[in-house]
Amino acid sequence: MKAAILSEFSAVKNVLLQQFVIYLVVGVFVGIGMGSATAMVACISAMAPILMVFTFAGYDSMNGWERFRATLPVSRDALVIGRYANVLLTSLATLVAAFVIALLLGQLVDVLPIDAETAQFISEEMRDPAMIVGGGLMGMCVMLLMTAVLQPFILRYGMTKAMRWVPAGLMLVFFIAVLILPQVIDAPAFLVDFIAWSENPDNLPLLVGGLTVLSLGIYCISCAAAMALYHKKEL
């Protein structure tokens, strides 16, 4: 397992710095543009999982790398777990890095070319680091959920086919949900209640914790599904 995780990581470690520069530029623009360190951390953290999945998928389809990778002394299960672990670990590392950038932003807020009101808002945000980490965690978890849907199909059928069929499948699921949900619950009223509940700061830890547990659970289920699908893939 260690060999699978490390070899997979070795394949992407050279691009991590490039990706981090992208996260930084986009994140700082979003952060300063929206005048919020929480938004910046959430934005950077949300970018990491999906970019990592696309990076790995791009490499798989390059020069027969995926076939060669399967000749290394690791099982197919280990390859899939290694892939999922790398996406998760690099996403967590990006979250930590984004938080450090937010701390730096908080220190530099007086010298940055931003108006006094925004500077004041960012300074206030910095007094509640848990809120910033929570924002980042929620951004990361939402995108982890998306990668949980994508990854089994990307691993089994390759990125081109997955990108063709998964959105179509999601649209189908969405329309079925739109048709069925009104018969089960009062969706608009539920949404209004949920938004009101989530805006209460006291409920924030529960919301962040719940989303984290839910997304990690679905991520693990997705990993198990990917392992089952990858078992029979011809390479």
Binding site: A3, A4, L6, S7, F9, S10, A11, K13, N14, V15, Y59, M62, N63, G64, W65, R67, F68, T71, L72, P73, V74
Partner: peptide, 27 residues
Amino acid sequence: IGVVLDTCPFIGDLPIKATGSIMKAAY
């Protein structure tokens, strides 16, 4: 087993040294 495939399968963007790192991690 040492394997050589009909086309060079290593990731094009990586330097040769990094290819060695991948193999080192695997074996």
